[in-house]
Structures are given as structure tokens and as C-alpha cells.
Amino acid sequence: MWAVYKKELKSYFLSPIGYVVIGVLLFVCAVFFYLTTISYGSIDLGGLYFYAALYGFMIVIPILTMRMFAEERKNGTEQLILTSPVSMVGVVIGKFLAAMSVIFITLLISFIYFGIMSYFGSPNIKVLLVAMLGFLLISGSAISFGMFASSITENQIIAGIITITFLVMSLFVPDLGKGFPDIAIINLYQKFPSGVISLTELVGTISFAIMFIAFTIIVMQRRKLVK
């Protein structure tokens, strides 16, 4: 697992993907830092992370996840992994954690905003940490879905589009009717940004991530039967 994790993380930063993801996400953060805090004269950073998750993920998560398995399948390198004495569970979790790490790095950099706020006032660090934890959880859900999309096709573009569609749906869900809110994972990131640890959201995001990680593992394990 750690071999895969190390290699994947390295690949993110050997290619532009890692930098693009971090850059774009920080840019979105910066925009909403201005819109939600500076312009209102507020010291609450929760809105920044909420909007970064809502809009930033649409761009960033597909970029981060679309190549995960699709590229390996296309280049045939999945043969190297599948014929090595590693378990599929380890491979999938290794890749998942590598993508999570990129988001985590972005989160660390986003402490800048906390620094700026501290200069002007005294923001609550606990609220911020809860918001960040929630951000990490919700990104886990989004990444697991993107990873699953990548595992079912060998075309990266298709994987990316599936992921974008899923994430964009969050925006339209309120218009779709009452039955649909559960589809939007952003609904699982409502209380965390304001510093409240919600059990619903905690369980919701984690179980969502586990479900799609499990789906990915199943898809990859079935590959050797149907190939």
C-alpha cells in the first residue's frame, strides 16, 4: 500500500497535476476569502471552505482523480500492479490516500488566511480546525467517487466528465425536488464550516467514501474475471 501511495504522490508532483490542483484550489479559496470575509469585515473562515468545496471541487477533483485507474488501464501498467503480490485493497487505498494528501497539503497552505485574520482580529482556531476536518472528509467523499469513475473506464476524459457531472449536480439539487438532496454530497458539509461537529455529516461523508472505495475495489477485482 505504501509503495503505491509514495509513487502516486510522487507522480502528482512530477506532472503538473499536483501543482494545478493546489493552485486552483488556493485561487478559489482566495476569491471566497475576499467575498466571504474581507468584504463583510467578518473573521469567520467557514464560508471560505464551504464555497471552496462547492465550486473548487468541480474543477479540482476530476483533475485529481480521472487518471487514477483509467491511465493505468490504458497504458497497460495495471498488469504490473495486478501481477504483483499486493492486494487490490492496498492499491486502491494507497491511491486514495495519495489524492487526499494533495488536498491536505492545500489545507496546510490555507492556514495563510488564518494568519491574515489573526493580524486583524482573533479568529477561533477550534472553529477553523473543525471546518478543515469537514473539508477533508468531504474531499474524501468526492475523491472516492472520482476514483470509482476512473476505475470503470479506460478513458480519462469520460471519467472526468462523470465526476464533474456528479459534483455539478450539487448546484442544481435544490431545483430538482425534495427526493434528491441526498445526491448532493455538499449537503454533508453544512455544519462543519460553522465549527459544529455533526454526527450526521461525519458518518455520512465517511460511509460515502467507504462505499465508493469498496466499489472501486470490487470493479478492479472483477477485472481479472472479465478481461
Partner: peptide, 24 residues
């Protein structure tokens, strides 16, 4: 494997090391 699939963004040494790690 046929068609020598490789990770093209790694160096030779990195790739061989990765394979060593994968194979435990």
C-alpha cells in the same frame, strides 16, 4: 508483459525501485 507497459514519468531507477517495493 507484452508491449512493455511502464510509468513514463518515472526515471529508470525510480521505476525499478517502485517495482521492488510493490513486490515486497
Amino acid at each position: 508483459p507484452e508491449g512493455v507497459p511502464l510509468y513514463s514519468d518515472l526515471t529508470v531507477k525510480e521505476f525499478v525501485t517502485y517495482m521492488a517495493e510493490l513486490k515486497g
